[in-house]
């Protein structure tokens, strides 16, 4: 990599980490290329080296990705999505998320989320309609792939909602306008609308080491000292388990609204949770080494959105 490019990228991430320190996540991605056996192997994995993977949930996600007709978000390394999450207990939640692409320099990503979508209402024709009611038929598209009149009308209304709300206090819009990488103008995003919709099955794991089995790592790296309310439910009151990272195993299918193309993607994602991130990075390095020795995985950096658009070639 050219030195100037490296410096620019470093400066970008320095800015990203200072201004948006609370809006970033430290992630690693591993692609599972069309190999169901590897997926199943990871699914049943419990120990790798000194680390244990404690499976704690299996959720379903529906994601509607938005972009302009000329894919300006993708070109500038961002993805914007509405997400519906259904937990194994059937709890449903919605969010609106902006993410930056992961970079080669480090694994920090910008992530901004608006999680109370129940608040938002709009007018469709003469009727008052909630944002969630506008989104639901689009999520359902993953089940039947029928591009109904309702879906087409809702895509248009969502575009109107975005145009009205672009200057409202909604975090993804606030960050689109000021993110230290490319500050979008309203004009650039005037045609922002749903492009893709995906359905993912996500299995989630807590990556821990158990000091009752092997306390040498705890002695070397210390405890991940988090407040009780920062710990996941499954790890509360379990002082012997030292939480290092969160892992998620996704199996996703994406559909376009334009030409009914379909793509399937599988990946494993690791997110650093150690209170001192530099220690977490060292521990995840050790985990990654063991993981890549044992499994045929390839390290990746592109988001599912970029991978899906590239495979489906909807931006060509």
């Amino acid at each position: 990599m050219e030195i100037s490019k490296y410096i620019l990228l470093t400066l970008f991430f320095l800015q990203l980490t200072s201004i948006h320190a609370q809006l970033t996540e430290d992630q690693r991605k591993f692609s599972i290329k069309n190999n169901d056996s590897i997926y199943k192997e990871i699914e049943s994995l419990s120990d790798i080296g000194d680390f244990s993977l404690l499976q704690h949930s299996k959720d379903i996600y529906y994601d509607i990705y938005l972009d302009s007709p000329d894919f300006t978000l993708k070109k500038h390394g961002f993805s914007l999505r509405f997400r519906k999450r259904i937990t194994q207990n059937n709890d449903i939640s919605y969010s609106f998320q902006l993410k930056s692409e992961m970079n080669e320099v480090n694994s920090i990503r910008l992530e901004a989320e608006e999680d109370n979508l129940e608040l938002y209402q709009f007018i469709q024709g003469t009727n008052k309609v909630s944002l969630i009611a506008l989104l639901e038929p689009l999520f359902q598209y993953t089940e039947n792939q029928v591009l109904s009149d309702v879906i087409q009308l809702n895509i248009q209304t969502i575009n109107e909602w975005i145009n009205f709300k672009f200057d409202a206090p909604i975090l993804p819009f606030q960050l689109l306008k000021n993110n230290g990488k490319h500050n979008f103008s309203k004009e650039e995003l005037i045609g922002l609308k749903p492009i893709l919709v995906g359905r993912s099955e996500r299995m989630r794991f807590h990556g821990v080491f158990n000091e009752e089995v092997n306390d040498s790592l705890t002695k070397m790296y210390g405890y991940n000292r988090l407040l009780e309310n920062e710990l996941p439910e499954h790890l509360k009151n379990k002082s012997g388990l030292n939480w290092i990272f969160e892992a998620s195993l996704d199996k996703s299918t994406f559909y376009t609204f334009q030409n009914m193309k379909v793509v399937q993607l599988s990946e494993l994602e690791i997110e650093n949770k150690f209170n001192q991130p530099s220690i977490g990075v060292q521990l995840i390095d050790a985990f990654e080494k063991k993981l890549l020795l044992n499994m045929k995985l390839s390290k990746g950096s592109s988001s599912k959105y970029v991978q899906a658009v590239n495979v489906l070639s909807v931006d060509e």
Partner: peptide, 12 residues
């Protein structure tokens, strides 16, 4: 109103 709400919510 937006000048107020954005100041109160926008981390940038």
């Amino acid at each position: 109103v937006r000048s107020i709400t954005n100041l109160l919510t926008n981390p940038t």
